[in-house]
């Protein structure tokens, strides 16, 4: 084990670091730029009515674009590291579980679409909708109704990349205007909805994929 002395030194250093951090934050001057006011001033041109969605997909759209790229890369990494030659067939779930999954999945899709739509005016949007969709996909896979994750086919792979590609195409098309992801205000709402719809599908599949790829071959390890 780690010697007691080293452990004590690390904890002591960390405690003084935390103290310094808290005192530094208490001493922090007021920010020079008032970002909420800047967001408020540009809301009319953003195409949506909720400030967080406006920041995510309009004002700081390139952050979100890169983030989706990171997600896709992480999933590729997980799939590459855990690659198996023979995909195990998912166990045929029990009847009660299958019944529940069949009842719950359409409602979860409905909730996801609602969240996506609500993102324009209140908390919600592609990430929350994607999380719900991902949970539905996990449920359907674990009960054996949609066994596509055992051997990802072309359609599944296309769905994984679609959100990122749609986002990239929109960003590329808007480059002609001179800036990355500077939507023309008249079309902003529609473009954001298009991007968010693609992101919802892809994020749902990616999140489900991260979960299922990690749980896939745990059975034959013991």
């Amino acid at each position: 084990m780690i010697p007691l002395l080293k452990r004590a030194a690390v904890i002591l250093a960390a405690a003084s670091f935390a103290g310094a951090l808290v005192f530094a934050m208490l001493d922090l001057p007021a920010p020079g730029v008032h970002l909420p006011a800047a967001v408020e001033a540009n809301m009319a041109a953003s195409g949506v009515a909720h400030p967080v969605t406006a920041v995510l997909l309009n004002f700081r759209g390139y952050d979100t674009l890169l983030e989706v790229g990171v997600l896709l890369l992480a999933l590729l990494g997980v799939l590459a590291v855990g690659a198996r030659a023979t995909p195990p067939a998912p166990a045929p779930g029990e009847p009660v579980k299958r019944m529940f999954a069949r009842l719950a999945a359409p409602l979860m899709v409905l909730v996801a679409v609602y969240l996506l739509w609500a993102g324009a005016i209140q908390p919600g949007g592609a990430f929350q909708a994607g999380a719900v969709l991902g949970a539905a996909a996990v449920l359907l896979h674990l009960t054996g109704i949609l066994p596509g994750w055992g051997a990802p086919g072309l359609r599944l792979r296309a769905g994984l990349a679609a959100g990122f590609l749609i986002f990239l195409v929109v960003a590329g098309a808007l480059l002609a205007q001179g800036a990355v992801l500077a939507y023309p205000p008249a079309q902003a709402g529609r473009l954001i909805l298009l991007i968010e719809a693609g992101l919802t599908v892809s994020l749902g599949l990616i999140l489900a994929g991260l979960f299922l790829a990690l749980s896939r071959d745990s059975g034959d390890e013991a």
Binding site: L35, P36, V39, P51, V52, A54, V55, L56, F59, R60, D63, T64, E67, V70, L71, A74, L75, G77, V78, V81, G82, F127, L203, I206, L207, L210, F211, A213, L214
Partner: peptide, 26 residues
């Protein structure tokens, strides 16, 4: 008042954290 800019950044960060955790676990 709440600031939407860091909130959006954190929302992005949470999703990236999920992905990086999954990669680390793999």
């Amino acid at each position: 008042g709440a600031d939407p800019v860091p909130q959006a950044m954190v929302l992005t960060g949470i999703v990236v954290a999920v992905a990086s955790t999954a990669l680390a676990l793999a």
